[in-house]
Simulated scan of single mutants.
Amino acid sequence: MRKRWWKVLGLAGVMGVAATGVVMARAERRRRAYTPEEIRAKLKEKVEGQAEGRRS
């Protein structure tokens, strides 16, 4: 009976690692879908927002 629990636990761990890999791959695909112009615009917005926060 103990072996069965270890097998189930091991299988759950493997499935968790696989699911994490899938999530990371999707995020990477979304990140790489931006054009360089879009990235520059987002960075400028972020910097301007931080600069305004410091002035307040």
Results as ranks from 00 to 15, higher is better:
1 M>C: 08
2 R>H: 06
2 R>A: 05
2 R>I: 02
3 K>E: 15
4 R>W: 04
4 R>I: 03
5 W>S: 15
5 W>V: 15
5 W>A: 13
5 W>R: 13
5 W>C: 09
6 W>Q: 01
6 W>D: 03
7 K>H: 10
7 K>D: 03
8 V>K: 15
8 V>L: 07
9 L>P: 00
9 L>Q: 02
9 L>C: 12
9 L>S: 05
9 L>W: 03
10 G>V: 00
10 G>R: 11
10 G>N: 03
11 L>G: 03
11 L>R: 06
12 A>D: 12
12 A>G: 06
12 A>H: 03
13 G>V: 02
13 G>Y: 00
13 G>K: 04
13 G>P: 00
14 V>W: 13
14 V>K: 05
15 M>A: 15
15 M>Y: 01
17 V>I: 14
18 A>M: 09
18 A>L: 11
18 A>F: 14
19 A>L: 04
19 A>Q: 03
20 T>H: 06
21 G>A: 09
21 G>Q: 00
21 G>Y: 02
22 V>W: 08
22 V>I: 04
23 V>K: 12
24 M>T: 12
24 M>C: 09
24 M>R: 11
25 A>G: 09
25 A>D: 14
25 A>C: 09
26 R>N: 13
26 R>L: 05
26 R>M: 05
26 R>K: 08
26 R>A: 05
27 A>D: 14
27 A>H: 13
27 A>N: 10
27 A>T: 13
28 E>C: 05
28 E>R: 03
29 R>C: 10
29 R>G: 11
29 R>T: 08
29 R>D: 08
29 R>V: 14
29 R>I: 10
29 R>L: 07
30 R>C: 02
30 R>T: 01
30 R>E: 11
30 R>P: 02
31 R>D: 11
31 R>L: 09
31 R>I: 06
31 R>P: 01
32 R>T: 10
32 R>Y: 05
32 R>D: 12
33 A>M: 10
33 A>F: 03
33 A>W: 11
34 Y>R: 06
34 Y>F: 06
36 P>K: 00
36 P>M: 03
36 P>H: 01
36 P>S: 00
37 E>G: 10
37 E>M: 08
38 E>L: 11
38 E>M: 05
39 I>N: 00
39 I>E: 04
40 R>T: 08
40 R>Y: 12
41 A>S: 11
41 A>R: 05
42 K>C: 15
42 K>T: 05
42 K>A: 08
43 L>N: 14
44 K>A: 12
45 E>C: 06
46 K>H: 08
46 K>L: 12
47 V>A: 14
47 V>S: 07
48 E>R: 08
48 E>V: 03
48 E>G: 10
49 G>I: 12
49 G>K: 05
49 G>Y: 01
49 G>V: 09
51 A>K: 08
51 A>F: 02
52 E>K: 13
52 E>M: 06
52 E>G: 03
53 G>Q: 06
53 G>M: 13
53 G>D: 04
53 G>W: 15
54 R>N: 00
54 R>H: 12
54 R>G: 02
55 R>T: 06
55 R>D: 05
55 R>K: 15
56 S>T: 02
56 S>P: 11
